[in-house]
């Protein structure tokens, strides 16, 4: 039976690249997000790249009412269910400092919204006894940095949630992959100067797919971020607090 992938935040550039890889493997897609016109174009692209079915469906991380129709669709499928979470938002730290109310939305988009969805989906995945969860976090979640520590905090929360979910779902044959991308060349970073190791979305997508196939637990992508973050994580807090990195 052909597996089905639920892609949350399917209008994101990395999600689109990943969805195309899923399509080329001949697997089904449920493309969930807010911009339906855009999702429909991506769904068509997936069909034309080999997906037996690709359907656009509304999803808003801040609106739990939007979750049920997706869960219903998932329940109605046969075969393995996989889910990949690409949602998240990143107001600049300056914007947040000016309007702390933005913190709630950032945490909802990047952590609690997806966590609520995954928690609702978990019993169904346990029931099927197979499948994969891909949670896209960020290297920003590894350490609170001056430049974006609210975004970082939401991703750190998501990482910890995924770690627990891995512990739980692993018992019934469902694998959880935590993905920590570095900076990626997308609309979100377009026009920002001096980004190190800027990666293309296609590269991130293929790294994710390889991690799923190899049942990796946590990956940094591109790989260079693993040594970089290992060093950054090892800096004592007394020194780190004086650094601007």
């Amino acid at each position: 039976m052909t597996p089905t992938w639920i892609i949350l935040g399917a209008t994101s550039t990395i999600a689109r690249a990943f969805a195309r890889l899923v399509a080329e493997r001949g697997e089904n897609l449920l493309l969930a997000g807010r911009d339906m016109a855009e999702l429909n174009r991506t769904a068509a692209d997936c069909i034309n790249h080999g997906a037996p079915s690709a359907e656009a469906i509304a999803f808003d991380a801040r609106d739990m009412a939007s979750f049920a129709p997706i869960l219903d669709k998932a329940t109605a499928t046969e075969g393995a269910i996989n889910v990949a979470v690409f949602v998240g938002s990143m107001p600049t730290q300056d914007e947040i400092d000016g309007d702390p109310a933005l913190i709630a939305g950032t945490i909802t988009d990047s952590f609690t919204g997806p966590a609520q969805f995954l928690t609702l989906l978990a019993p169904l995945m346990e029931d099927r006894g197979k499948g994969a969860v891909v949670g896209v976090g960020s290297v920003a979640g590894d350490r609170g940095r001056l430049g974006n520590y609210v975004y970082g905090a939401s991703k750190a929360g998501f990482h910890t949630y995924l770690s627990g979910l891995r512990n739980r779902l692993g018992r019934s044959g469902v694998h959880v992959v935590t993905v920590k991308p570095g900076t990626v060349d997308t609309a979100m970073t377009w026009g920002m100067d001096g980004l190190p190791f800027l990666a293309q979305p296609d590269k991130i997508a293929s790294d994710i797919m390889r991690a799923v196939d190899k049942k990796k637990n946590v990956i940094y992508t591109p790989f260079i971020w693993w040594p970089v973050m290992t060093v950054i994580k090892s800096i004592p807090e007394a020194i780190f607090k004086k650094l601007k990195i």
């Binding site: 550039t13 174009r41 991506t42 068509a44 692209d45 034309n48 790249h49 609309a187």
Partner: peptide, 18 residues
């Protein structure tokens, strides 16, 4: 970045693409 295949008709081969 606007690079999607919007339609493909496997009978006629007609494609609509970004």
């Amino acid at each position: 970045r606007l690079d999607r295949v919007l339609e493909f008709d496997p009978d006629s081969g007609v494609i609509h693409v970004e």
